[in-house]
């Protein structure tokens, strides 16, 4: 029906979301602060023994990244829902799953990419070492898009609910388990000087699966939530 190719609709929405985020820059910083703060709390809670921190560091950073991703995800549809733009997206002649993919990717660029930038710093704080730090960056680059893609399904299901945030974490966190396991153990393994190719291929497989299935699931969920 529409004459423009799919990539056109994708780009239009992607650019719009980036522009909106740029005009409200302050919101980008919040999940980032949360990420740093949570990670910084752990040494205070469990003691500053470098050996201990090195052992639990990958897990801590990844759990913190997971929570930061979850926290920032909540906002992905909120303003669109409140001002009615979400309805308009639903009624667009373009496939909703492509539009959803655009929204998720813009959202990841806004909230996920900054996590990557500060993560090496946190790695230094927890004394991870160069190899582990590089792997941390790599796993975050592969893993956080999966978190965004899976989480968006949950947000689509809870959009418009009054206590959506609480329920969202209950829906989404169990689904985050595989990413957490593969990614944090990749960082530990790299820290021990072993090969991490198995971990990385598993993460890539998860990313491919999430990329192919999640936008359609999000679209279906959104149609139901807004009906």
């Amino acid at each position: 029906m529409s004459t423009a190719p799919l990539s056109h609709a994708y780009l239009i929405l992607f650019k719009r979301d980036l522009l909106l985020a740029f005009r409200k820059r302050a919101e980008i910083i919040n999940p980032l602060l949360f990420f740093v703060l949570v990670t910084a709390l752990f040494p205070l809670g469990i003691g500053a023994d470098p050996a201990l921190l090195r052992a639990v560091g990958p897990g801590i950073i990844w759990v913190a990244a997971l929570l930061a991703a979850l926290l920032s995800l909540e906002t992905i549809f909120r303003s669109d829902f409140e001002d009615g733009s979400l309805e308009q997206l639903l009624l667009s002649p373009h496939p909703l799953s492509v539009l959803m993919l655009a929204k998720v990717s813009a959202h990841w660029v806004i909230t996920g990419l900054p996590l990557l930038l500060v993560a090496p710093l946190l790695g230094l704080l927890l004394d991870l070492g160069a190899d582990a730090n590089a792997t941390l960056l790599l796993t975050l680059a592969l893993g956080t898009p999966v978190l965004s893609l899976i989480g968006t399904i949950g947000v689509a299901l809870t959009v418009g609910l009054r206590r959506g945030g609480m329920i969202l974490s209950l829906l989404v966190l169990p689904l985050y388990v595989p990413v957490l396991i593969f990614a944090s153990s990749a960082v530990s393994t790299a820290g021990a000087g072993l090969s991490i190719s198995a971990h990385l291929s598993l993460l890539i497989a998860l990313l491919a699966l999430a990329l192919s299935l999640s936008p359609a699931a999000t679209a279906a969920a959104l149609r139901i939530s807004l009906s």
Binding site: L19, K24, D83, G84, S85, E87
Partner: peptide
């Protein structure tokens, strides 16, 4: 609809 569907920041 009831809600304008316009972005206030654009």
């Amino acid at each position: 609809g009831h809600r304008d569907g316009v972005k206030l920041d654009l």
